[in-house]
Design a protein around this nucleic acid. Structure first.
Lengths: 178, 178
DNA sequence: CGATAATACTTAGCTTGCTAAGCGAACCGC
DNA sequence: GCGGTTCGCTTAGCAAGCTAAGTATTATCG
């Protein structure tokens, strides 16, 4: 039962950067690997904290968005949470079933649904936001505020490059751009 | 069809840090949100690069581990890749089906299986490692080597804190710890 | 006005990852 | 030397996310 932790003990950075000449690319030094590992560790801890309240990770970022701005449409929610529409939809349906949100059709444009928090959904904010903040604070406890800021900037830069690259790849394969 | 990108345009950092007094916790400033977004962007780009070779993300970290050290057992592979055994198993079975690896039972301990690359699996290394390195290099192109090192250190610190916290949480709920 | 295009959501089906629980092989203590 | 425990893998089933391809509804243009 022993709760295994697959960690990786990220040591030995900046070591043999170009030592292995051709095809050696130590996994532990890879930004990709570390991002993935950090993401999963964070998910795991957050889930442990929020699941006692009946909230899953799948709902989390949508609730965050709704607490900040109620009545969003599904597309707006997708954009806020950074997910595709089908992902958003299934999360909404589950949240609706659990009585956290209500779907209301737009009067003017009947294609749209507005997602509104119920009283129950709204109430959770006061409990869960501090809890989430606690997780993040714990996660960065050994970093100074400047280091955290640099970490966020680094991540933002990486995302910018990746999105730019994605744009290029899309255009290449689409070909019929405009 | 338009290949939507849910981005998020991470602007406005360091803005209203402690403005919202109590329960305002801007999602964009959260390390958790940014880690998740970066992870997904990275995955997407990597997938686009490797799928022409018939490799999926599910196989990727296992191949990485095997290229570095062939003949690992499933548990060893799980530890190297940072996944749980069932995840490892299903990836192995798929890779076996695609002719990338072979499973060989341990003579001495018949519980164990050793996973060996086939010639086909081994050959891919020379093509895919440079490709992956290209993705990572592209992703960090706007960061100096020092900034990349700091990013990795930051991620490692965050993971360390998270794993420590996980250990505590486990012990709490297990209670019967020796 | 009517045909066509665009928009907003939905459905179907897949992938990657997990936990919980099972099964056979090896080990350990008496 | 065999009964219980541990170990390594397996099975079952679920969660979160995606793409591709629908279905309605609204907007647009001749």
């Amino acid at each position: 039962m022993t709760t295994r932790k697959p960690a990786a003990s990220a040591k030995s950075r900046t070591g043999a950067k170009s030592a292995g000449k051709a095809v050696d690319f130590p996994i532990v030094e890879s930004v990709g690997y570390q991002i993935r590992a950090t993401h999963r560790a964070l998910q795991r801890v957050l889930l442990l904290k929020i699941e006692p309240y009946g909230i899953t990770l799948g709902m989390w970022y949508f609730l965050r968005a709704l607490w900040h701005e109620d009545g969003l449409t599904q597309r707006e929610l997708s954009n806020r949470a950074g997910t595709m529409e089908p992902t958003t939809l299934s999360a909404i349906l589950i949240m609706e079933k659990r009585g956290l949100v209500r779907r209301v059709r737009d009067k003017a444009d009947r294609r749209k649904w507005h997602i509104h928090l119920t009283a129950r959904g709204r109430t959770l904010k006061a409990r869960l936001i501090p809890l989430a903040r606690g997780v993040v604070d714990m996660a960065v406890q050994n970093l100074s505020p400047e280091e955290v800021a640099r970490l966020l900037e680094g991540l933002a830069e990486v995302q910018k490059s990746l999105h730019a690259s994605l744009g290029r790849l899309d255009k290449t394969s689409a070909k019929a751009a405009e």
